[in-house]
């Protein structure tokens, strides 16, 4: 659990982070979103003490971070720096091995871990291990940066725009992967982005920052249903609220049982798809309802246009 209480950081006369208090529960993903220069990176970097707060308290699992020697603290926290920050003179494998080496892991354990992580991030170990960062594409570099942060299996991972250099399709794939990885590792993640879609897709909780202040910290649903500030509504895109709500609901969760009297629908969506995708499919096919199919491809229920519309209504 990460707890920030009244955290403020001044640069000169200006409070770049201004009286921020928030709690990230264990195993949660908190996404900090805001415009460029709003203080997101500074906030993130205070958690691993790359920046010291001017005032306020930061604790991890009840322990004040300022009482832990900085390098010890940081070895236990994964960190993906904005713009990858890979070591240009080291191979991909050596880059990923950085923290395990600092922790003194035995060689074969490091080697195993490196190929495991490369596979996890869909970088073929045979091809990438021996390459140098300048030989990779921007997206591959960022994935290596993520692998490096996860290398020692930290409980907490701080990620500063980890997917900035990815194209939209790979980006959404990477976001899904990150969700899956987090579910597997059970890590607490704080992720910084300026992309509101990414925030809604990934965040268990979202902190909206503006000029150093957190305007609102809450679940994605709260953000849309009860914006604390007109600026939050503006940032989350008031016109798109309905669609964002639909994107938060899985078709499997909204499915109704089949009605034996009516014939089964001719089109279907997977249970893992969102209602937003279901709506798109309904519009496209002109049908009134869709079958919802489970992992094995068999129908588990149905969604109707009426129920989709109900989910999108202003709460």
């Amino acid at each position: 659990m990460i707890r920030l209480e009244g955290v403020t950081r001044f640069y000169g006369e200006r409070a770049v982070v201004d009286d921020v208090s928030l709690v990230v529960e264990k195993g949660e993903m908190a996404v900090v979103v805001g415009r460029s220069g709003s203080g997101k990176s500074t906030l993130l970097r205070m958690i691993n003490r790359l920046v010291e707060p001017t005032s306020g308290l930061i604790s991890i699992d009840g322990r004040d971070v300022s009482t832990v020697p900085a390098h010890v603290l940081r070895r236990g926290i994964g960190y993906v720096i904005q713009g990858h920050g890979l070591f240009p003179h080291r191979t991909v494998a050596d880059n990923i091995a950085t923290v395990p080496r600092l922790l003194g892991w035995p060689r074969d354990r490091i080697a195993r871990r490196v190929s495991e992580l490369l596979e996890l991030l869909q970088l073929s170990p045979a091809r990438f291990s021996g390459q140098y960062p300048h030989q990779l594409s921007g997206g591959e570099q960022q994935r290596v940066g993520v692998a490096r942060a996860l290398a020692a299996g930290p409980d907490i991972v701080l990620m500063d725009e980890p997917f900035g250099a990815l194209d939209p399709i790979i980006r959404s794939k990477a976001q899904d992967d990150l969700k899956a990885i987090q579910a597997r590792l059970g890590a607490t993640i704080v992720l910084v982005t300026h992309d509101m879609d990414e925030a809604f897709r990934l965040g268990d909780r979202i902190a909206v920052m503006e000029a150093g202040r957190v305007l609102q910290y809450g679940t994605p649903r709260d953000m849309i249903a009860r914006p604390a500030d007109p600026r939050v509504a503006e940032l989350t895109g008031s016109g798109e609220g309905a669609l964002r709500l639909l994107a938060l609901v899985r078709a499997g969760d909204a499915a109704e049982p089949f009605d034996a009297s009516t014939p089964p629908p001719s089109h279907s969506v997977p249970a893992g798809a969102s209602l937003r995708e279901a709506l798109a499919s309904l519009l496209w096919t002109g049908e009134g309802e869709l079958a919802v199919t489970g992992d094995d491809g068999r129908p588990v229920g149905r969604v109707t246009l009426a129920s989709v519309l109900r989910h999108g209504r202003s709460p």
Binding site: R45, N48, L50, A70, H71, V72, L73, R74, R75, G76, Y79, I81, Q82, G83, H84, G85, L86, F87, P88, T98, V99, L102, G145, R148, A149
Partner: peptide
């Protein structure tokens, strides 16, 4: 960025 990352990793 590399120096920063090095520090950030401990």
């Amino acid at each position: 960025a590399a120096v920063d990352a090095a520090r950030g990793m401990g």
